[in-house]
């Protein structure tokens, strides 16, 4: 299969400090991948380099067979930044934020065309927040805000979407809903890369994992990649890994591991496992 986005021997940094070095990675159409690593491991910088927002010190980024010019993100890429980077008091509605993703397709007039509004409405419907389209973004819950950003990234009909910590700060239910939605989108041909440090969600929902710690440690299917050795290399700490048929549960201590195990049980069994 022809690659969609490829990075070759990429090294990036700020001022005199390199953030990561010699990263090689290839993403394919329809691939759903998770980029895992601890805070400060360089995940956000890698995503920004893939977008052309960070000037690489060395190496190249290729998208759809063309070399990316730093500072000029190509069309066909959607980006969902961390929610903390946004001023939620800004006076715009959810629909207006989604409409921003149509920038390349719009004319110079300040008002939106009927077609744009229909497309934005369909996207909001698809991500399940059509009922809050006309509400100010500051009035939405964390999960809804995340979905607005996802809708903005999708409304331009991209080939790939890069999401930076989309599940951070949201509860388990919201995380699962979002990951299911992304899985659905990848089945329709969209390539998705999301960064996270929530290993259990990744292990459950994502078919491909890239472990990152100032460079790519390893990549592959969660069942192969999540071993105590690779997790120590990635997070710099000892981790417990429990394999249960085709499932993996990961934690840094035994109590949390048992808690995670209990949460993974069906509700009826959870009632009977209170002593755990």
């Amino acid at each position: 299969m022809e690659s969609l986005l490829e990075i070759k021997q990429l090294t990036c940094g700020y001022q005199t400090q390199p953030v990561f070095s010699n990263a090689n990675l290839t993403l394919y159409p329809g691939q759903l991948s998770g980029l895992v690593g601890s805070s400060g491991s360089g995940k956000t910088t890698l995503i920004k380099a893939m977008l052309g927002l960070v000037h690489p010190w060395q190496g190249e980024v290729w998208f759809r067979g063309k070399r990316l010019k730093p500072g000029a993100p190509p069309p066909g890429v959607g980006y969902v930044p961390q929610v903390e980077t946004v001023d939620w008091n800004f006076p715009v509605t959810a629909e207006e934020v989604v409409m921003m993703g149509r920038y390349r397709a719009q004319n110079f007039l300040p008002w939106s065309s009927r077609r744009d509004r229909i497309i934005a409405g369909e996207l909001l419907e698809r991500v399940g927040i059509a009922h809050v389209a006309h509400q100010p973004i500051g009035d939405l819950s964390g999960g809804q805000q995340q979905r607005v950003f996802l809708a903005r990234a999708l409304v331009g009909n991209p080939d790939i979407v890069l999401l930076d910590e989309p599940t951070s700060g949201s509860d388990l239910h919201v995380q699962h809903e979002l990951l299911h939605l992304l899985a659905e989108l990848s089945q329709q041909g969209l390539s998705v890369l999301l960064s996270t440090h929530d290993l259990n969600s990744v292990a459950t929902h994502l078919p491909w994992v890239i472990c990152f710690n100032h460079g790519i440690v390893c990549q592959g299917q969660p069942i192969d990649v999540f071993t105590p050795e690779t997790l120590k290399q990635t997070f710099g700490a000892d981790m417990l890994v429990m394999r249960q048929q085709d499932r993996i549960i990961i934690s840094s201590d035994a109590t949390t591991l048992l808690h995670e195990l209990k949460n993974s049980l069906p509700p009826a069994l959870q009632q009977n496992s209170k002593s755990l």
Partner: peptide, 10 residues
């Protein structure tokens, strides 16, 4: 509103 994503969107 969002300078960084604005750059990504062209």
């Amino acid at each position: 509103f969002d300078r960084e994503v604005a750059q990504v969107q062209g």
